[in-house]
Amino acid sequence: MPNLALELGKQSASLGVRSVYGEQQDVDGVRVIPVAISWSGFGAGEDPERGSGGGGGGVAIPVGAYIRRGDDLRFDPNLVSLVAVGIPFVWVAGRALSRIIRALKR
């Protein structure tokens, strides 16, 4: 039986920016380079008596794209995704700031 962890690792190569956007594109002299945040996790196990099994998953969030026209390079964000990704950071920063202020008042 092939090693399940190795097989899952090979399949994880398809996750990421390519699964969200595809490859970079050149259209009328404008190059579009996609940007995404992605992560994945996998696990597998084998037991001689019970058999083997494995599973995993991944997430890829489209963040935006770099647009290149000649020498000009700019980032065009996907605002909905940036807000969704930014909410946890804002929550953590607010929580930390409130604790710092509370500690300074003592």
Results as ranks from 00 to 15, higher is better:
residue 1 M to A: 11
residue 3 N to H: 15
residue 6 L to M: 07
residue 10 K to L: 14
residue 14 S to M: 12
residue 17 V to N: 06
residue 17 V to W: 01
residue 17 V to S: 04
residue 20 V to L: 02
residue 20 V to R: 04
residue 22 G to I: 04
residue 23 E to I: 00
residue 25 Q to L: 04
residue 28 D to I: 03
residue 29 G to K: 08
residue 30 V to R: 04
residue 32 V to L: 14
residue 32 V to S: 10
residue 35 V to Y: 06
residue 37 I to F: 15
residue 38 S to F: 10
residue 38 S to V: 06
residue 39 W to H: 10
residue 39 W to Q: 11
residue 41 G to L: 08
residue 44 A to Y: 07
residue 47 D to N: 15
residue 47 D to P: 10
residue 48 P to A: 13
residue 49 E to N: 14
residue 50 R to S: 08
residue 51 G to E: 05
residue 52 S to M: 09
residue 55 G to E: 05
residue 56 G to H: 01
residue 57 G to V: 01
residue 57 G to I: 00
residue 57 G to E: 01
residue 58 G to H: 03
residue 58 G to K: 00
residue 60 A to V: 06
residue 60 A to M: 03
residue 60 A to T: 09
residue 62 P to E: 02
residue 64 G to D: 05
residue 64 G to C: 08
residue 65 A to L: 01
residue 66 Y to C: 04
residue 68 R to A: 12
residue 71 D to V: 07
residue 71 D to N: 13
residue 72 D to A: 13
residue 73 L to P: 04
residue 75 F to G: 08
residue 76 D to A: 15
residue 76 D to M: 15
residue 78 N to R: 08
residue 78 N to Y: 12
residue 79 L to A: 15
residue 84 A to K: 14
residue 86 G to N: 12
residue 86 G to W: 07
residue 87 I to D: 05
residue 87 I to F: 05
residue 88 P to K: 05
residue 89 F to Q: 08
residue 90 V to D: 07
residue 90 V to N: 08
residue 91 W to P: 00
residue 92 V to K: 15
residue 93 A to K: 10
residue 93 A to W: 13
residue 97 L to R: 11
residue 98 S to C: 01
residue 99 R to A: 09
residue 103 A to F: 10
residue 105 K to P: 00
residue 106 R to T: 12
